[in-house]
Design a protein around this nucleic acid. Structure first.
Length: 908
RNA sequence: GCCCUGGUAGUCCAAUCGGCAGAGACAAGCGACUUAAAAUCGCUCCGGUGUGGGUUCGAAUCCCACCCAGGGCACCA
């Protein structure tokens, strides 16, 4: 947060330099100059024909909002850009593209709010983003810019829809879907967070609608297995694993008494079948209506009614007491022949497994609570020594463990004797029970996934129309490829209707079309695709963005993809990243691409936090949140217009993620104006590791500017000296100890910076350069004016230092580096210059410090050549006076020597 | 409730394999330069790693328990 001091550092600097105006670090001149040069020379254009090895760096493409780019976005863009520049200098042909995730609700909502059409608004906002990205010196190949809302792009989104459709991976079905009453559209499961819409926080309701789905569940196993090989943050891999939610168990069929049908349940614990004393169906289960007996009809209907009207939040609340009603029907437990009652309860979810469970109250806490409440018998399957021996004495379900009881079977039982009596409660027993069930034809092993199919339909205007025609005689007919794109009609009114119908449904010219198959009048599908469809393949388009014959040329895809380094926010851990993986697997199986993981390497940047004024919520603002004590809203950011009028003593300041909605966004424009783009870049990389959240502060950027000025002040006056000398004058010069030390430091720094950039550790890379600069001032002091920069005794060494330092700082402060590079007499940008190498022999320490400990406590230090042999080091350690003092009168019991590090003398 | 990440100086952060706790910066202070201030250059300050145990010659690092912060999941049978 900006504290105060609108000090103009650059002006102050100019004064300090007085007469030396031409040599001062003037970012206001340097930065526009190089940005113009890069643009004019197409420095960052990725050459498809290059014979260099390829490297593809991609940041998740943004939705260009009206608020513009913030310094928070730069937390990702600046380091990714530094990485690109580094890779280019390492000899790679780098593809670094940018585009706009322009379809979808954020753009549409903003357009509605501002009463402008998104078609004209999006390019304007995109232009502003592009301007800001250029302002911070980002090295994008703008000739590859794409916009997902343009027909030449979404034509291929539709093409992929049809591809998935033809491969049986897209289908239409009617089911109760997640519906956001505010956004007035259906949502995918991934877009519901804690029962609320991920965009607007509105509690989600259920609504039965015909919708399009992608059959992502068909790839559940591959999506899960593929995670293993990915170089991604462990947290994101874990989230994907949990979202897919694999569990092993069995399907078991329970015959209904007095009905020929059976109820199928999924269970992970088929070994507890002997304790299943009732069954529970989800209220939406299709058999409920048929099973309910007349005397229970009213109760059941009433319960279903209430369950359907509850919001997801109410229904999913864990702490809520279990409720349910008896249907009047009974099923037979297939293993022991008992007749068990069939209930319905809303703690059973229609969307998971079969929507029906066998309830084993003795071994499942939820079933236990339910059984206790409704007086249903509790039958132990496993018992433990010292544990409860019958259901009546239990206070809660039994934890895992114990051994299986023997049971007295009924005549209807599957086998006359209980076959597993005495078996341990273990996964082996579960496995054997499954085999036994299969043998007797009452169940089969099954793997179940939590993942559900991806709901892609949106009842919104601003998206790619789903390319399907509904014909009264032919049914669903895909639009022929030659007729793509199905253009989104240009209309004035496109507000979401809220009826469950897309706004497109009200446009007869769009809806009415002849059937592509039979030519009879038919209706177009009016739903559009959610924005995640566009972002599931955009990384391919960048390889060949202007292709009008195909989504991209295969040879170019093979050359550039998969993406070598992908960066973006962790909020897309399960949405975009899972969808894009699925889509890629679909394409791979269709033979369109040669890989099935699009992003082998991923890094997630931390958020930029701003110090944000807020207030306590009013009573009425808490109402929808806190029934169960969670989800309490305790802080609401103040709108910019409220701050002036709000009582200052009631303002609560907090660090909050920068976002347009909180009104706490710091724009790069102001920062660049005041400190320069290079300072902003250096600050964002230096302040913390890439993955960490950062609290924005101007002081830090000022510090980065000071560092760049310091570096410049040392370098600039020496460049003329370097240029004046012939390149090869170093050989004869005698090397002093100080010269050798600084050269060693230089090579150690190159090594450190190289390793750190490879490992995405930009903060420590910059710290290493700072260290080198500090050492340079000690080696060869410079005063304020630069006039006292002495003529070096060893011009070759000076040339080496100046050259390597310029190149090393280039990824972080490219404008400054290119300016120095030019002054050094080179033409062109550092972007195509070679990254410096280090010489291990020069970087090697001449002397190393060995720490001498006595009983683990530091007592002395020895300085020895690195190749000194072990015994000699130990001898010298024992010879130390300080050691003698510490060991006086004690016996040496042991000497631990860690080569090159320490000697620990254990005495007692 | 469960899972994951992380707690190091007044602040942000380093410490690569279990081996000197401090690289770098911010802030503060002092000195030099200056008529003065700013800027600059140099120097200085402070902590023993959230808490309590354990393993080890040796723990910021490994193990156990707890506390705090951030994130994820949450009736998934």
């Amino acid at each position: 947060m900006t504290r105060s001091e609108p000090a103009d550092y650059n002006e102050a600097n100019a004064q300090a330099w007085g007469m030396c105006m031409t040599d001062r670090y003037d970012f206001r001149v340097i930065e526009p100059k190089w940005q113009a040069r890069w643009e004019a020379e197409s420095t960052f254009r990725a050459d498809d024909e290059s014979d260099r090895p390829r490297y593809y760096v991609l940041e998740m493409f943004p939705y260009p909002s009206g608020a513009g780019l913030s310094v928070g976005h730069c937390k990702n863009y600046a380091p990714a850009d530094a990485y690109c520049r580094y890779k280019s200098m390492k000899g790679f042909e780098v593809l670094h593209p940018m585009g706009w995730d322009a379809f979808g609700q954020p753009a549409e909502n903003e357009a509605i709010k501002r009463r402008r059409h998104p078609r004209e608004m999006v390019p304007e906002y995109a232009a502003n983003y592009r301007r800001t990205l250029k302002l911070i010196g980002a090295s994008y190949d703008w000739s590859r810019e794409i916009n997902s809302s343009e027909p030449e792009y979404y034509r291929w989104t539709q093409w992929f829809f049809l591809l998935l459709y033809k491969r049986g991976l897209a289908y239409r079905a009617t089911a109760p879907i997640n519906w956001c009453p505010t956004c007035k559209t259906g949502l995918a499961n991934e877009e519901v967070k804690e029962g609320r819409c991920w965009r607007c926080d509105t509690p989600v309701t259920k609504r039965p609608l015909p919708q399009w789905y992608f059959r992502i569940t068909a790839y559940a196993e591959r999506l899960l297995a593929g995670i293993e090989s990915l170089d991604w943050p462990t947290g994101i891999k874990l989230q994907q694993r949990e979202w897919i939610g694999r569990s092993e168990g069995a399907d078991v069929d329970f015959p209904i008494i007095g009905d020929p049908r059976k109820i199928r349940v999924f269970t992970t614990r088929p070994d507890t079948l002997w304790g299943a004393t009732f069954m529970v169906l989800a209220p939406e289960h299709p058999l409920v209506n048929d099973l309910t007996t007349p005397e229970h009809r009213a109760n059941v209907d009433d319960y279903i009614q209430r369950a359907m009207s509850a919001t997801e939040i109410e229904r999913m609340s864990v702490d809520r007491p279990k409720t349910g009603v008896f249907t009047g029907a009974y099923a037979r437990n297939p293993v022991n022949g008992e007749a068990i009652p069939i209930w319905i309860a809303d703690y059973v979810l229609m969307g998971y497994g079969t929507g029906a469970i066998m309830a084993v109250p003795a071994h499942d806490q939820r079933d236990f609570e339910f059984a206790r409440k409704y007086g249903i018998p509790i039958e132990l399957v496993y018992t433990m020594v010292g544990g409860p021996q019958d259901g009546d004495s239990m206070a809660q379900a039994l934890p895992d463990g114990g051994y299986m009881r023997d049971f007295t079977p009924k005549p209807e039982a599957l086998t006359p004797k209980s076959p597993f009596a005495g078996r341990a409660n273990s996964v082996e027993t579960v496995r054997e029970v499954i085999a036994w069930l299969e043998e007797h034809g009452v169940g089969e092993g099954r793997v179940n996934y939590r993942l559900r199919d991806w709901l892609i339909s949106r009842q919104r205007y601003w998206g790619a129309p789903i390319p399907i025609v509904h014909c009264p005689s032919c049914g669903e007919v895909p639009v022929p490829e030659g007729d793509l794109p199905v253009l989104l009609p240009d209309v004035d009114e496109y507000q979401p209707s809220g009826t469950g119908e897309s706004p497109l449904a009200t446009i007869p010219e769009f809806v009415n079309t002849p059937c592509p198959s039979c030519g009879q009048p038919a209706r177009r599908e009016t739903d559009t695709m959610g924005g995640f469809a566009c972002s599931s393949w955009y990384f391919l388009r960048f390889a060949d963005p202007h292709n009008s014959e195909a989504f991209a040329d295969r040879a170019k895809i093979d050359a550039w993809l998969p993406v070598d380094m992908y960066t973006g926010g962790a909020e897309h851990a399960v949405m975009h990243l899972l969808y894009a993986r699925f889509w890629t697997m679909g394409m791979h199986d269709a033979g369109l691409v040669g890989f099935d993981e699009p992003f082998p390497r991923l890094r997630s940047q931390g958020a930029m936090l701003a110090y944000t004024p807020g207030r306590a919520p009013r009573i009425d603002e808490q109402s929808d949140s806190d029934e169960d004590g969670d989800q309490i809203v305790d802080w609401i950011p103040l709108k910019p217009e409220e701050i002036a009028t709000f009582p200052p003593d009631q303002i609560i300041w907090r660090w909050a993620r920068m976002s347009k909605s909180k009104g706490n966004v710091v724009s790069p424009d102001a920062v660049v104006e005041k400190f320069g783009a290079d300072s902003l870049r250096v600050f964002e990389m230096f302040v913390a590791p890439f993955e960490d959240n950062v609290r924005w502060n101007d002081e830090g950027v000022a510090g980065s500017l000071r560092f760049l000025q310091r570096l410049w002040r040392w370098m600039a006056p020496r460049i003329p000296q370097v240029r004046a000398e012939a390149p090869q004058t170093s050989s004869g010069a005698a090397e002093t100890d100080a010269d050798r030390a600084i050269r060693r430091k230089l090579h150690q720094t190159i090594r450190k910076v190289t390793d750190d950039i490879e490992g995405f550790r930009f903060n420590t890379a910059i710290a290493a350069i700072m260290e080198l600069v500090n050492d340079l001032y000690l080696w060869s002091p410079t005063d304020v004016s630069g006039s006292h920069a002495e003529r070096p005794a060893n011009p070759g060494l000076l040339r080496e230092i100046v050259t390597c330092l310029t190149l090393m700082v280039a990824p972080f402060a490219p404008h400054l580096a290119d300016e120095l590079w030019e002054r050094l007499g080179h033409s062109g940008s550092t972007y195509r210059a070679a990254w410096p190498n280090w010489d291990p022999a020069i970087a090697a320490d001449e002397e190393i410090t060995i720490v001498v400990q006595v009983n683990g406590k530091l007592r002395d230090r020895l300085s020895v050549p690195p190749d000194t042999d072990d015994d000699h080091v130990k001898e010298r350690a024992l010879a130390s006076a300080k050691v003698a003092e510490a060991t006086a009168g004690k016996t040496v019991r042991k000497i631990v020597y860690v080569p090159g590090r320490l000697v620990n003398i254990v005495v007692g």
